[in-house]
């Protein structure tokens, strides 16, 4: 491990990195770069090896193979927002003490970080009295306050209800953005990744299977596996190709070219999620109310989706579906 060489904007680089937990290799052959000013979301299903990769990048786990180069100091905010039994401000001040910030600078910097993440009003509160969302805010403030060159966050929004998560995400969006800092956020939820990240790293079964800007990956997933992970749950066989769709790509239209039958209808807040059985596949869509019910015949129009060769799942043919 050494300082990232070459491009001065590269703050963290790993090359062909493999990491073990005990005897089991959890991360295999991962190469990636993190640049100053950039926020990257590391996305993957449960057990994909995201936290293990983050631990290795932080230096908390050794690399079994490959190399990691870092430029500057790394701060990590673990998934669990455990705070010391003292006030919120004292918790952030304590983190600054660990980081080595001179005593006189700690309180102003702690207040600044709390303000940035929308938690200044909590400063005098004992940590034990905070709600889950408030604890997460303070946890984030602690990591931001130390002003690291590289910031690694492990699922900072885990376990929050939708409303609290949306509010924290909004505040984190501006607080995490820095021209000089490189930030890697491990997220479980795709919506968090879209909201935060300039670039996504998708890790499945310990392998880095896709990397790129969120919009680009969504429009052009590099493999069937990635497409499934990104929410392409509909599948339609079309000759030698497979068309994968997201619910937004499927519209109910009485004049649509494809015939289907509703096999399941799940009520949502603003409509109904429909499962449609077609002659050559199964599609999903979200329809506004009033929506057809199970057993109803419908006509469908496709407004997007991606095509893959039927027997070559790894090589995509990105295009708009018919």
């Amino acid at each position: 491990m050494s300082d990232a060489a070459g491009d001065p904007r590269v703050m963290l680089r790993c090359e062909r990195l493999s990491v073990r937990r005990g005897r089991r290799e959890v991360v295999h052959d991962v190469s990636a770069e993190l640049r100053a000013g950039e926020i990257i979301a590391l996305l993957g299903p449960n057990g994909a090896g995201k936290s293990t990769l983050l631990d290795a990048l932080a230096g908390a786990l050794p690399a079994a193979q490959g190399r990691i180069e870092r430029r500057g100091r790394v701060a990590v905010a673990l998934q669990s927002p455990d705070l010391a039994r003292r006030t919120v401000l004292a918790n952030v001040v304590l983190a600054l003490a660990w980081w080595g910030v001179p005593r006189g600078n700690r309180a102003p910097r702690a207040r600044e970080a709390l303000r940035a993440i929308g938690a200044e009003h909590l400063a005098a509160r004992p940590a034990a009295t905070l709600s889950g969302g408030e604890r997460r805010r303070v946890h984030l403030a602690r990591a931001i306050a130390v002003r690291p060159d590289i910031l690694l966050l492990d699922e900072p929004f885990a376990g929050l209800d939708a409303e609290v998560r949306a509010s924290l995400l909004e505040d984190a969006l501006s607080a995490l953005r820095s021209a000089t800092r490189a930030t890697l956020v491990v997220v479980h939820d795709r919506a968090e990744a879209w909201a935060l990240a300039d670039r996504l790293l998708i890790l499945i079964d310990g392998r880095l299977v896709a990397t790129g800007p969120p919009r680009e990956l969504l429009e052009q997933p590099p493999s069937l596996e990635v497409a499934h992970f990104l929410g392409f749950d509909g599948r339609l066989d079309d000759g030698l190709e497979v068309v994968l769709t997201r619910p937004a790509h499927v519209a109910l239209d009485p004049a649509g070219p494809v015939h289907g039958r509703v096999t399941r209808a799940i009520p949502l807040e603003d409509g109904v999620r429909l499962e449609l059985e077609l002659e050559h596949g199964r599609l999903y869509t979200v329809a506004p109310l009033p929506a057809p019910g199970p057993g109803d015949d419908v006509r469908v129009r496709l407004e997007g989706g991606v095509r893959f060769p039927r027997f070559e799942a790894s090589a995509p043919v990105p295009s708009t579906a018919p």
């Binding site: 908390a60 701060a75 990590v76 905010a77 673990l78 455990d82 010391a84 660990w98």
Partner: peptide, 24 residues
């Protein structure tokens, strides 16, 4: 909670600082 002590180490706390935190 193991997270607090691990977090302290990851934010640069030395052995003495982690020990004092644990005792407190």
């Amino acid at each position: 909670a193991p997270g607090l002590l691990a977090q302290a180490r990851l934010l640069g706390a030395g052995r003495l600082q982690v020990s004092m935190l644990a005792l407190r």
